[in-house]
């Protein structure tokens, strides 16, 4: 029963949602509003799961004095300090909470993502070393699209921005459309598997 009841809930709600999509009745709208209000009430508690997971992973490292456990202590300190600063001083502009966001979280977040520019350059070099016709086509398309977006491309030749635009509007569109059709069919098949109780991995392990 520990697995059957949740499965019955998914199948019942799932078919009610299918009906809601096709039947524009006020009862159907009321069902949807009820589901949204309940989901919104459930969602904040998911954060507790995240906090518990982070605390357990790093707490275990600290208690076992695992290698580099000091960094785990720093993570937990930053978690508690940032969270507490939001509750004590508020989250509006000019508070310590916003200072942490502007001078700690935001600069590190954008730097972390900008590191990807170097990793992507390294990946491009490796792809170029593969010397296959497909890898060459990929890189040529990438170079033309990149040059087409900056003034340098126009300075080299007026054909570069035009070719870049053609790549985006013709072969790229065909590729995206073909992939979108495959993704759409895959999503439909997976949703049907969940709806019919064939796919049950979301229930997790155990009895």
């Amino acid at each position: 029963m520990k697995r059957q009841i949740p499965l019955i809930i998914v199948i019942t709600l799932g078919f009610m949602f299918v009906a809601h999509t096709f039947i524009p009745h006020k009862a159907s709208v009321a069902f949807y509003d009820w589901w949204v209000s309940w989901s919104k009430a459930i969602s904040p508690f998911a954060v507790i799961l995240g906090i518990m997971s982070l605390t357990m992973v790093h707490g275990t490292k600290i208690s076992r004095k695992a290698p580099n456990w000091q960094y785990s202590a720093l993570t937990l300190f930053a978690l508690v300090f940032t969270g507490a600063s939001g509750f004590i001083w508020g989250t509006s502009e000019g508070t310590p909470f916003m200072w942490l966001f502007k001078n700690v979280q935001m600069p590190m977040g954008s730097t972390m993502f900008s590191l990807l520019a170097f990793h992507i350059a390294s990946a491009a070099y490796k792809a170029f070393r593969a010397r296959s016709a497909e890898a060459t086509v990929l890189l040529i398309a990438a170079i033309i699209v990149m040059l087409g977006q900056v003034p340098l491309g126009m300075a080299i030749s007026k054909w570069i921005p035009e070719t870049s635009s053609w790549i985006l509007n013709v072969p790229n569109l065909a590729a995206k459309r073909g992939i979108a059709l495959g993704v759409g069919l895959g999503m439909t098949a997976t949703s049907l598997k969940i709806l019919l109780g064939i796919e049950r991995t979301y229930l997790g392990g155990g009895d």
Partner: peptide, 11 residues
Amino acid sequence: ALFIGVSMGYA
């Protein structure tokens, strides 16, 4: 380590 803690604490 600081980034992970601050990001979660921010949420």
